[in-house]
Amino acid sequence: MYDALVVGAGLSGLVMAERLCTQLGWKCLLIDRREHIGGNCYDAPDANGVLTHLYGPHYFRSNYPEAIAYLSAFTTWREIRYRVSSFTDGRHWSFPINLRTFEQLIGRESSPEEFRGWLDRRRMSFGEPQNSEEAMLASVGPELYEKFFKGYTQKQWNKHPRDLHPSVCRRIPIRTTRDEAYFDDSFQAMPQEGYTALFQRMLQACGNNLDLRLGLDFSEARNRFAYGHLIYTGPIDEYFGTGLGRLEYRSLRFELESYSSRDLARLGRQGFRQPYLQVNYPNSQPYTRIVEIKHATGQDTPHTNLMREYPQECAPGREPYYPVLTPPNLALYQKYLGLAAKERGVTFLGRLATYTYLNMDQAVERALRVFQGKFAAGVYGAGRERRA
């Protein structure tokens, strides 16, 4: 008899399992249908020993002191500023859009005042934008929207931006200064030894209060084990057997290219294959971006690797990565949310279970908030003894 079954060993599930085990002394079973912990944040060395993000780049950044302090108990950090380029029209462009991007566009030096005036003359007015296309046309106007956002968004989501919620494209900042940093968050860093090492320390902190079962699906575990409370971080429609219809998620395919020092020497390169951590391809290529994560990890090795990222449909057997935030999907999610509200002894947590795009720090912060507000406060009881 477990106090809690935690479904999903990604960030949300790991945080909740660690808190329940270490702070309340609960006996928890943590499961994941993959063969590793960490969910999409999992990292591991490639054939040359280069630490690799197997499911795309995960850039930790945050303005949440609680999330930073919590994770800092399990890792030291390598603080960095993430740099990204966008490759279109046969050249690299400074990205996200900033004064340098504008100077590349007009072919001369400029000023923040000139760039702001240029944007003001091109921005379109919609009142409150109703979709991602309107959001970006209102932010940067048609020329920059077509060059950097429209094609990338269509590849990423297989949807026209006008069919997506405004928040989908609003995540990328627009600056009129020469600040080329990809994010504005006050804290930007990578775990010094990688994400998997961080997660392993979280599990070690749980001691004998945690049992971990990998390669185990919830549909099997719910019938094999007795438990009091359920923490569910999987797709919410799957929990209900897709009885109201399937929610739409976007999946990804990754293509890894490893380069030894000898490979790089033949190409006339040393240490790195491309000049930027991440290069976006908004228009001409079938992939959306190429990432050379060694730029961020700072690993001391003469080898490197590239990871190409291809968005794809979330067919059966493929991992769901992103909720597709269209009006029909959001309406269907509200129906599932109504069913979830009637479930006793179940907490729905994380990106897939709440059908919300969450950054890593947001996932950590929400898990901590749910734990403190409901479990530590005694709303959900205090273990097997009380429930017995």
Rank of each mutant, 00 (worst) to 15 (best):
K27M: 00
D361A: 03
G241N: 06
R116E: 14
L349V: 00
I80N: 09
N131C: 13
A181L: 09
R366V: 01
P327R: 04
Y357A: 01
H92W: 06
S260Y: 06
R344E: 15
M16V: 05
N158F: 14
S251G: 02
P327I: 09
A315T: 12
L358W: 12
E365G: 15
S12L: 05
G241F: 01
Y145A: 00
E109I: 07
N208G: 11
Q188M: 09
E309Q: 07
L352V: 03
C169P: 11
I293C: 12
P142C: 05
R222S: 10
M1G: 15
P96C: 03
K374L: 13
C41H: 09
R369S: 15
Y380S: 10
I236C: 07
L11Y: 13
Y42W: 10
D185N: 11
G345R: 04
E319W: 13
A138I: 07
R162L: 13
L137K: 08
M16C: 04
L29P: 05
D361R: 02
L216G: 00
V15Q: 05
T76H: 12
A17P: 12
G338F: 01
Y55S: 13
F254R: 04
R266W: 12
R387C: 00
D263S: 07
E313F: 12
G338M: 04
M16F: 10
F95Y: 13
F225M: 08
E35T: 00
M136C: 11
R171F: 04
M202H: 01
G39H: 06
L210D: 00
I97G: 06
T288Y: 00
W93A: 06
R344L: 15
N223T: 09
D361Q: 03
Q274Y: 09
P112Y: 07
T196D: 09
V279P: 00
N305R: 08
H303Y: 05
K335R: 15
R201Y: 02
R122Q: 13
P45F: 02
G245F: 07
Q312N: 12
P235M: 08
L352T: 04
I106P: 05
M307Y: 04
P173V: 02
R171D: 03
A315K: 15
L164H: 08
V291F: 00
F148T: 02
N63L: 00
D32S: 10
R366Q: 14
W118R: 09
P45K: 04
Q285V: 00
F240R: 02
E113P: 05
C21I: 08
A340N: 03
G234K: 04
G194H: 03
D185S: 10
R384D: 12
V50I: 11
Y59E: 15
L14M: 13
I174E: 07
E143R: 09
H58E: 06
Q270E: 15
Y310V: 11
M202G: 02
R83H: 12
P96V: 05
T88G: 02
N98A: 07
E385V: 15
S167M: 10
E109L: 12
A376W: 07
L252Y: 01
I68Q: 03
L99R: 08
R273M: 13
V140E: 01
R289S: 07
G373E: 07
L14P: 10
E365Y: 14
F115V: 09
T347A: 05
R266C: 13
L51T: 02
W157S: 06
A331I: 10
